[in-house]
Design a protein around this nucleic acid. Structure first.
Lengths: 93, 93
DNA sequence: AAAATTTGGTTTATAACATAAACCGCATTA
DNA sequence: TAATGCGGTTTATGTTATAAACCAAATTTT
C-alpha cells in the first residue's frame, strides 16, 4: 500500500494545510480560531510544516503588534495533493 | 472544525478498515500481506479496533493452524463513513 | 504611574501512539 | 530431539500530539 505522508497525516497539520490551500495567506490568530487549536499546539505544528518546507512563515508587525503570516509553498501544495490522492486509495473515493 | 475520529486517523487502522469495508471478512495473514505491516503492529492495531467495537475478531482453526478472522461491525462501518465525511470537509472534496 | 490583563506567541513537560524487536506455543521437518 | 516455520502477542522504545507554563510587549484598570 502507498504510504500516507506522516507530516500531513495529523489532524491539526492537515487542517492548517487545508485552510492554506484555499486562502493564499493566513495569520496565526486566524488559523488558531479556525482550527480551534491551542496556541502552543499550533505553534509546534506550524514549525514542523515550516521546517519541512510545506509552508512559509513571515513575522511582521501590524502597528505595534506582531503578526505571523503563513502561506503554503509550491512544495507543500504538491505534497498536499499527493496526500489526497493516496488517501483516496485508502478510502476508495 | 469537526474532529477526525482518532481511532481511524491512523495509517494502519485506516488501511485495515478500508480493506474490511470491501471484503466482508479477512484473516490476520491476509491483512498483514495487504497492509505490509509487521505482525506486532497489526496485532496491536486490530486489538484497538476490536476493543472499540469497530471490528470483530474470531479465532478459529484451519486444520491445526490458528486463524484469526476479522469483520467490520455495523458500528465500525458507521464510524468509517463518518470519518470519510469529516475528512472530505478537511480536504474539500 | 503602577499594577493587572490581554495579545501573540514559544518552550517544555507529559501523555498517547505507532512501531519494531523479542518472545511464545504449537506443528512440521530434518 | 533439535531446529525451523507459522500465527500471533507482549514489551520496550522512539515519535507525536497536546496542554500547561512561560515570556515580552502592549493595553487597560485603579
Amino acid at each position: 500500500m502507498r504510504e500516507l505522508d506522516p507530516l500531513l497525516h495529523s489532524q491539526l497539520r492537515l487542517a492548517v494545510m487545508s485552510i492554506l490551500m484555499n486562502v493564499d495567506e493566513a495569520d496565526f490568530v486566524f488559523l488558531k480560531e479556525k482550527t480551534e487549536a491551542t496556541a502552543g499546539n499550533l505553534s509546534v505544528q506550524l514549525d514542523k510544516l515550516s521546517t519541512a518546507g510545506y509552508i512559509s512563515m513571515e513575522k511582521g508587525f501590524v502597528g505595534k503588534k506582531t503578526r505571523t503570516v503563513c502561506r503554503v509553498t509550491k512544495q507543500g501544495r504538491k505534497a498536499f495533493e499527493e496526500y489526497v490522492e493516496a488517501l483516496k486509495e485508502y478510502l476508495n473515493l
